[in-house]
Computed example of a mutant assay.
Amino acid sequence: MNIYSKSLPALVCLVFLMLVTGNSLAATTGAEKPSLAVLIDIAGKQRMLSQKIAKAYFFHGQGIRRDKTRKQLFDSIKEFDRNYEVIRNSVDNQGVQDMLVYIGMAKDELAALAKQPYSKENAALVLDYSETMLEGSQDIVSRLEEMSKLKKEAIVNLAGRQRMLTQRIAKYYIAYQAGFRDHNTVEQLKKAVKEFEEAHAALRKARQNTPEINKELANVERLWKVVAKFYKDVERGGLPVIVLATTDDIMATMNRITHQYVNILGS
Rank of each mutant, 00 (worst) to 15 (best):
Ala106Val: 01
Met147Tyr: 00
Glu109Ser: 11
Tyr118Thr: 04
Leu134Cys: 11
Lys78Thr: 14
Glu79Arg: 15
Ala106Gln: 02
Ala206Gln: 13
Gln94Val: 11
Glu109Val: 03
Val193Leu: 09
Ser137Tyr: 00
Leu217Trp: 08
Val141Gln: 03
Ala206Phe: 10
Gly95Phe: 02
Lys194Ser: 13
Asp182His: 08
Leu189Val: 12
Ala199His: 09
Ala112His: 02
Asn209His: 15
Ala178Asn: 03
Glu198Ser: 13
Asn214Cys: 08
Leu217Cys: 07
Thr166Trp: 11
Leu189Cys: 07
Asn93Val: 01
Pro211Ser: 08
Arg163Glu: 09
Ile140Met: 12
Val186Arg: 12
Leu100Lys: 05
Phe80Glu: 14
Leu165Asn: 06
Ser90Thr: 13
Asp182Asn: 15
Ile174Arg: 04
Val101Arg: 04
Leu100Trp: 02
Asp139Arg: 11
Val86Met: 10
Ala178Tyr: 07
Glu146Ala: 12
Tyr118Gln: 00
Ser148Asn: 10
Gln177Gly: 01
Met99Ser: 09
Lys191His: 07
Leu100Arg: 05
Ala123Asn: 11
Gly104Thr: 03
Ile174Tyr: 10
Tyr84Gln: 15
Leu203Phe: 06
Ala111Pro: 00
Glu197Gly: 01
Ala192Ile: 04
Asp81Val: 10
Phe196Met: 13
His183Val: 12
Val126Phe: 04
Ala170Gln: 06
Asn93Ile: 05
Arg143Ile: 09
Ala199Met: 14
Thr166Phe: 11
Leu189Pro: 05
Leu100Ser: 09
Ala106Phe: 05
Ala178Arg: 03
Asn83Ile: 09
Leu158Asp: 12
His183Met: 05
Glu135Gln: 07
Arg82Ile: 06
Ile169Gln: 09
Ile87Cys: 14
Glu187Ser: 10
Ile174Asp: 07
Asn184Tyr: 11
Ser142Glu: 15
Met147Asp: 01
Ala192Ser: 15
